[in-house]
Design a protein around this nucleic acid. Structure first.
Length: 342
DNA sequence: TAAGGCTTTCCTGGTT
DNA sequence: TAACCAGGAAAGCCTT
């Protein structure tokens, strides 16, 4: 549909939502209909954590993605757009899909998760996942109440609780990868990194499960990036915009450790002075690492392999006989009390 | 453009 | 049996 029509619709909605305000600049007709200019106009929300979004920002964000996805805005219930960022972040994927339709709703959910990741430091991500990611409709062992709990008390999760990070990350995994089979699950028979699957969760065209017959065995090594256009391209552009340079795994681990008040029980120091630490929620840490690297198929197994490579470079030292325990080596920095001051 | 560093992924085998 | 550990091999991505 024409962007001007969308703008008109959103403009009217905006006037209804904010009657006391002058006609907002945010959705008035653009200088042109070029998406990039639209996006640049919207940098106010793009650089801000979604939880901090105002109603304006939410409206802008929805408007951008309605236009970007060429969604027919006439099908949009504008009342659905009347919410602030915190409210938006409490919505499950199902809720968004029911409000915006399966296609747009699912897309918004994916983008929202990415926005959250891209605009947060990882320590804020934990609580956020509890809201964005929660899927009350997905029952699992002993977790039915957990999902309800998360929905009602999204900021009160503690990793020590019965519904800690493990179930949380499981729910994230299932929700983040959408309604299709999570390719990284053990059931996927090691086809997790098949190029056809690896970007599935980002690719609208892959929302329809592929029927490829018998699972084909992929080769070793990282699967190539999907170079397709559209949604994938959008994600890639987001990635290049936000992915910080020089974020190494050991630094990511170190940063979790040196902020104990924020690490949600993911890891703990065994011996701070010697740099010995332990993974408490190994899969959750791997998930966070994967989110940081835009890789939802990250597992502790892969993360630990990367950790082991640090032995050679003496960034980490071996701790024999202790599971999930590692030690910073002489080539690691920034974790010592003298360096951090706490 | 090539090289090298840094992962990421797969795999086999061993240990807890 | 599951989870974890160890490390080889291969490959992609990114920086220089």
């Amino acid at each position: 549909m024409a962007s001007s029509e969308l703008s008109l619709i959103l403009n009217n909605a905006n006037a209804n939502l904010y009657p006391s305000e002058p006609q907002s600049n945010l959705l008035k007709p653009r200088h042109n209909d070029n998406l990039s200019s639209l996006k640049s106009d919207l940098s106010s929300w793009d650089l801000v954590n979604p939880q901090m979004w105002t109603r304006h920002n939410v409206l802008e964000w929805i408007g951008f993605h309605v236009e970007d996805s060429r969604f027919d805005a006439s099908l949009l219930n504008m009342n659905c757009c009347d919410m602030d960022g915190i409210t938006l972040c409490t919505m499950s994927k199902e809720t968004l899909m029911s409000m915006f339709g399966s296609m747009l709703g699912e897309r918004l959910h994916h983008i929202l998760v990415l926005e959250c990741i891209n605009t947060l430091d990882l320590f804020v991500l934990g609580p956020l996942l509890e809201t964005v990611v929660v899927q009350p409709s997905i029952p699992s062992d002993n977790s039915e109440n957990s999902y309800r709990y998360f929905d009602e008390y999204p900021n009160q999760l503690t990793p020590e609780s019965d519904h800690g990070y493990d179930s949380l990350t499981e729910s994230f995994q299932s929700s983040h990868t959408g309604s299709f089979l999570n390719p990284s699950s053990p059931e996927s028979n090691s086809s997790d990194s098949d190029p056809e699957y690896s970007e599935m969760h980002y690719s609208a065209k892959n929302f329809v499960k592929q029927e490829s017959g018998e699972p084909k065995k992929r080769g070793r090594g990282r699967p190539p990036k999907c170079q397709s256009e559209g949604f994938d391209h959008f994600i890639q552009s987001k990635k290049s915009k936000h992915a910080p340079r020089g974020t190494h795994l050991w630094e990511f681990i170190r940063d979790i450790l040196i902020h104990p008040e924020k690490n949600h029980g993911l890891m703990k120091w065994e011996d701070r002075r010697d740099g010995v630490f332990k993974f408490l929620k190994s899969e959750a840490v791997a998930q966070l690492w994967g989110q940081k690297k835009k890789n939802s198929s990250m597992t502790y197994e892969k993360l630990s392999r990367a950790m082991r490579y640090y032995y050679k470079r003496e960034i980490l030292e071996r701790v024999d006989g202790r599971r999930l325990v590692y030690k910073f080596g002489k080539n690691s920095t920034g974790w010592r009390i003298e360096e951090t001051g706490y």
